[in-house]
Amino acid sequence: MKRSRIPLYTTCLVLLFFYLPIAVLVINSFNASKFGGGWGGFSLRWYRELIDQREIWHALRNTLVIAFSATALSVVLGTSAAFALHRFTGRLQRLHYTLIYTPLVVPDILMGMSLLLFFVALSAQLSLLTIFLAHVTFCISYVAMVVLARLQDFDFSIVEAAQDLGANWWTAAWRVLLPMLAPGIGAGALLAFTLSIDDFVISFFVAGPGSTTLPIRIYSMIKHGSPPLINALSVLLLVITFVLVWFSQKLTEEKIK
């Protein structure tokens, strides 16, 4: 029986398409030449210059403050939402599910715009706080979906066993369900953290003076700044991404075993 080779070729081409731009970026970050056209020799010059960019470090600090706090709150809200969606059915949960699901598909720009108008209508000062509120809003949905997917494969007879042995629902949830779901909650938290670190559009709409985040800084560098510095910064971000993906893979593997 002859098999078509089209799927194989498509996959290889797509992977080349995925990685070629990233590879060029990494190579160029070590290129001494200021203009990416030719190879000017190996150099760490751009990484050294990056260290002197105070604005970048300030922006990174803002980004991390928001990412950690938004992740923490959205994990609590998202996990509780996933429990509700899984354990209960009915009108309330159907509404709840629609509310959790819709932010996942709404384009960022609409969410940014509506939150900006909301804060303007409240005459709230745009700051790190408004960015934090916006990030929690979109992270809840992602955390809820990841945890919900884990709950669906979860064997609830274990919780029932705990209840038969005299634990009440809360004890069973706290001592049995939660620890067993920890990898799922961890994966949701990592996703929320990555999305928060990476978010540009929504942050851009609700950022005020002095609350520049790293993606906002990178955006203005892409628009007006020097390409070699962005190359070097991008490579650092890539390394962080690889570490995060590696962690999240570890969390998934544990589940398979």
Partner: peptide, 29 residues
């Protein structure tokens, strides 16, 4: 293969757009 698809999915959105700006630039590859 799944990992190879997931990595770009997690990679910074701006970085990936910037990479193309460099490639398509008049001096680009």
């Amino acid at each position: 293969f799944l990992l190879l698809v997931i990595i770009p999915f997690w990679t910074s959105f701006l970085v990936r757009i910037f990479a193309w700006k460099v490639l398509l630039h008049p001096d680009g590859l």
